[in-house]
Design a protein around this nucleic acid. Structure first.
Lengths: 235, 235
DNA sequence: TTAATAGTGTCTTTCAGACACTATGTC
DNA sequence: GACATAGTGTCTGAAAGACACTATTAA
């Protein structure tokens, strides 16, 4: 037998940074680790995920979708791989690797968290690239990378549109971008940019309010995000 | 003991797409698999890489650098993670994952391939995102993703500059971009863009030729690539 | 001189930014 | 009417594109 196959094999897991926009905050879903004797970091919060199950999962994407469904009960409109991490030290149980995905869930899909198992779940609002409190393992780093990717994509793609509920106004979409980017954007430029894509379609409905009603839009059935030719002006 | 630790562990490897510009072709370094009894795909070519050695490697980056050094004998000026792949079917020996990195080697560093072990190595010129001939495992897909990343980065970053030798002319740099992007670029726009960065510094030397000598430039000691505010115009 | 590539001047085009303006609802 | 937010008209500005022009070498 080939000697290299006898190398000690690392642990392999998939972790998810599942984002949603809740009460005006970009938030990420966290799971509390159970208090069990041989578990490292019992009681600490982590990104949802876990070891690959070589019987259940046919590939990494599939594993990510399975975990997502398990925690949120929904199929996310957008999932993207952020990257992978692996080292001898990130998990006290030994050499381990993780494949990190981020996904965006619409605000109105985000509430029914659970999905079957009784893990303790919590939506944590982001403060910059961090949440309050310490995360287990290197999950703060993973989260930071995922938030960085989302912010980066917000500069020049339509990715944040996947945070929106079924119907939404351009004002709401702009606010979502502003929260992700943590800066204000110019209204006209934003609207022109968004309407130039083939991603939004106008509905015949309006959102009523204490002032002029706003046109409701919905996403067309494009799966892929739109890439703008220029980023928003940095400040 | 936690049951999940008893899951069968996947194989974990790191693979590298090492690019260089050779004789006017963007080329990638390949290794020939040895003809051994239990090895899958004996005699086929693959991207260099291999299983993580949990004794030697402290993390994935370190493993990538070690493999790179092993094959090329040089430390690449640029290494970037492309992503990770994993499935039950990509390796006949069982569930396996790989972490893919791409790196750029200057033309004048690329010749002394070897580095200690006597693997059969070859620089294969790229035709689109492929090389002539079949690669083992899913390495054609990994290569395609790595080439796609390099091309993508060429649109709006200075990344291809890391393909250049110690001193080079702006014309040579433009040709490198044109080969990577597989289209011509407008000279003035290209020069203005490149000189607006703080990446190039003028040397007092010129490259002599059968016509007007061209100023030689070198890279400043910036490690990070420069991100331009707009991509080159798509065609 | 010619051939060839290096390098520039300058006008056009594109699209984001700024910002004032109008529109339309509730109260 | 006031107020608030929706939505537009239009000028400015920054950087790329086009392309003709000049510069400098060898032969």
């Amino acid at each position: 037998m080939n000697q290299s196959l006898n190398h000690r094999r690392p642990l392999v897991s998939v972790d998810l940074a599942i984002f949603s926009m809740l009460h005006g905050d970009l938030s990420v879903l966290l799971v509390k680790r159970r208090d069990e004797p041989f578990d490292p970091h019992p009681g600490l919060w982590t990104l949802p995920g876990g070891l690959i199950d070589t019987n259940l999962d046919k590939d990494l994407e599939h594993c990510a979708q399975r975990r997502l469904k398990e925690k949120t009960g929904v199929r996310a409109p957008y999932v993207e791989q952020v990257g992978s991490w692996g080292s001898a030290s990130r998990d006290p149980r030994g050499w381990s690797t993780t494949h990190v995905y981020f996904s965006l869930i619409a605000e109105d899909e985000a509430s029914p968290i659970s999905g079957g198992n009784a893990d303790e779940l919590r939506w944590a609002p982001l403060d910059g690239s961090r949440v309050r409190g310490k995360l287990a393992f290197d999950h703060s780093d993973l989260l930071k990378a995922a938030v960085g990717r989302l912010r980066g994509k917000a500069e020049y793609t339509s990715v944040p549109a996947f945070l929106m509920p079924a119907e939404f106004t351009l004002g709401e979409l702009q606010r979502a971008y502003e929260i992700v980017l943590n800066r204000t954007l110019e209204k006209k430029a934003f609207r022109t940019r968004m309407l130039a894509t083939d991603l939004l379609e106008s509905t015949p409905r309006y959102q009523e309010g204490p002032n002029r009603p706003a046109r409701l839009f919905r996403l067309t059935h494009k799966r892929r995000p739109f890439f703008f030719t220029r980023p928003f002006r940095p400040r």
